[in-house]
Amino acid sequence: MSDGCPVEDGTAEYATCSPGTGAAAAEMVVPAAGGGPDEPPDEYDELLATLGRTEEQDQRISVHEAGHAICARLLGHEVGGVTVNPDPIHGSEGLCWGVGHSEAFSEGSGDASDVRAVISPMMPKAGEDRRPVADVFGSVYSKCIEFLAGRAAERLLLEVEPAYPVDDLRQARELALLICSSDEAIETFLAHCDVVARDLLMPHGDVLIVLSTVLRIRRTLDGREIDEIISDVVTRKAMALERRRRAEWRKSELMAARFREKCEPLDRRS
């Protein structure tokens, strides 16, 4: 979640797919800057003016929320949707939610503090067997990685240090309290999750670029659309790698054929 706090500026220019999703989407470029000073504002400029955002802020929020979504899918979790539109009720600049989480939020029970309040009494005390709640430990671990993935995505794509993700860290700390017994342990645990989130996203920077750019255009994507975009990028990358492999193999074949041609006169002489 991107909070409604002051944001840092970041710049980038992304080559990506059109607002349509899937393999049939035409490639296009979303420029990092608007038109000249004498040109009338376009729809995007008018939207930003309505939201009270700069283009750099909107870009940051898109990267942040795309990071949450991609990290969730890498961890095998379903994503209900993602948006870069602000939610004045929850005070968020953007939001990524899991399947069913939007209903929980609407009922006022979707926060990590609500989860901790329910689960905390069930957690074992010091010296008690923790095996019955091993799944809780695993869930807390992966969810905290997801919470920190937004900031990790910003650090991967944008040149400036991300804004402090107040709500992401608050919710991660709420969950960390289920398995950590001191502030120092919580900070160490979250620092570890921060590194894991970065390492998860780093090999998928191309997916992050495409998803964040399409998100800036579409504003809101559901889980199916997110999966289609990810699948499209992965498929295109695989096809490009296969074309490169075939080109290299063809080059090797040609070099081998030339080598044989050079060797034939020597064979005849002998």
Results as ranks from 00 to 15, higher is better:
A176H: 09
V195R: 14
K237G: 03
V233N: 00
G138S: 15
E39G: 07
E225V: 00
V29C: 12
A117K: 07
P86V: 09
A149T: 06
A256Q: 12
C17K: 03
E242W: 08
H101A: 14
T50L: 15
K251Y: 07
K251M: 10
P86D: 09
H90I: 07
M122K: 03
D227R: 09
V82I: 10
D3V: 08
V166S: 13
G34Q: 07
L157K: 05
D227F: 03
R173D: 14
E128K: 10
R219Y: 12
E261V: 10
E46P: 00
C193M: 15
R73P: 03
C193D: 12
I209K: 14
L200R: 04
D9H: 11
E27R: 08
A191C: 08
G108N: 04
T235P: 01
V214N: 08
E159V: 01
G20S: 15
R245Q: 14
D199K: 08
H90N: 09
M202H: 08
G76N: 06
V63Q: 01
V79H: 07
Q57N: 04
F147L: 13
R245C: 10
I186E: 14
A25W: 05
A185Y: 07
E228S: 00
S62L: 09
S2N: 13
V210L: 09
L208M: 08
T188Q: 14
T21M: 05
H68L: 12
S2K: 12
V99T: 11
L221Q: 04
I230H: 04
L175E: 11
E264V: 10
H192G: 05
K125E: 12
S231K: 06
E159I: 00
R170G: 06
E55A: 14
R216N: 01
L178P: 11
F189Q: 11
I226C: 09
A240T: 02
A24S: 10
E128Q: 15
R246L: 14
T235M: 04
G98M: 12
V30G: 00
G100N: 13
G22A: 08
Q57H: 11
R250V: 03
F259I: 02
R218N: 14
E27T: 01
E65L: 06
G36N: 06
T50P: 02
H204V: 03
L254H: 12
D114W: 06
E225K: 01
H192T: 04
Y141V: 08
P265L: 09
R260Q: 15
E228Q: 02
G223L: 13
R170W: 13
P162C: 13
Y141C: 14
V233K: 01
V29G: 08
L201N: 03
L47F: 02
